[in-house]
């Protein structure tokens, strides 16, 4: 199985690739459109600003390749944090920016009711997974995952696989056909995070 971690110049590719390798899968970190189109599993990592993420994907000519792999061939894609957000229609981070548009969803700012809660939301928080979720198979109930973000994905068009609460409930993970996304960082969430990655590799 060819697992490709998409390199678009944002985010910690090394730790994502390292986590996948730890699970025994062969991983390529690549920004080559052909390699991406031919992948069996794609991971779209990413930390940073939405507009930069899209600009980088375009500058590297990766939008069509991702489109072909995800929509054309229906390959499983896992987006992590910004990588998950990029699948949305648009984001309101620093202005309104169009995304890949694979999901009928928007990326909006966290707005906790409790004003004393600090933004960004950084740290380990509880995630409650929906029964039957693929990504959370064999993950104990109420496991903790590591988050670091100020925006989250929001929309009726996504199947919320897991929720988190930070002064407001928000989508911690989604599963929509072959598209998977986590707002948290599985590659930084120790054993439970590795299990989520394992599920993506082995159960999708």
């Amino acid at each position: 199985m060819k697992v490709v971690v998409v390199d678009y110049g944002l985010g910690n590719l090394r730790s994502v690739a390292g986590a996948v390798e730890r699970l025994g899968a062969q991983t390529t970190v690549s920004s080559d459109p052909t390699t991406i189109q031919d992948a069996d599993r794609l991971i779209l990592p990413g930390v940073g600003a939405f507009a930069d993420g899209m600009a980088n994907l375009r500058a590297r000519g990766l939008v069509d390749a991702l489109q072909e792999a995800a929509r054309g061939k229906g390959r499983p894609v896992l987006g992590i944090c910004l990588g998950a957000q990029l699948m949305a229609r648009e984001s309101e981070e620093f202005g309104l920016h169009p995304g890949l548009g694979w999901l009928d969803a928007r990326v909006v700012r966290l707005a906790p009711v409790d004003q004393s809660l600090r933004i960004p939301h950084v740290g380990w928080n509880d995630v409650s997974a929906k029964a039957g979720s693929v990504l959370f198979q064999d993950v104990p109930e109420r496991s903790l995952f590591y988050f670091v973000h100020s925006f989250h994905i929001d929309g009726m068009g996504i199947d919320r696989a897991a929720m988190c609460d930070y002064g407001q409930p928000f989508t911690a993970a989604f599963e929509a056909d072959n598209l998977y996304g986590t707002q948290f960082h599985p590659e930084k969430s120790q054993l439970q995070g590795l299990q989520v990655l394992r599920n993506f590799l082995e159960r999708t």
């Binding site: 910690n12 090394r14 730790s15 390292g18 986590a19 730890r22 930390v47 590591y146 670091v148 960082h185 590659e187 930084k188 969430s189 120790q190 995070g193 590795l194």
Partner: peptide, 30 residues
């Protein structure tokens, strides 16, 4: 550290430029 530790890793000391950010992030710092 980054290869072995699946927890967030911050790195610093002597950082003066965006190039230094690139270098540390490239080594696996978050």
């Amino acid at each position: 550290l980054s290869r072995q530790c699946f927890v967030p890793l911050a790195a610093g000391g002597g950082v003066r430029s965006v190039d230094d950010f690139h270098a540390l992030l490239g080594m696996g710092a978050d």
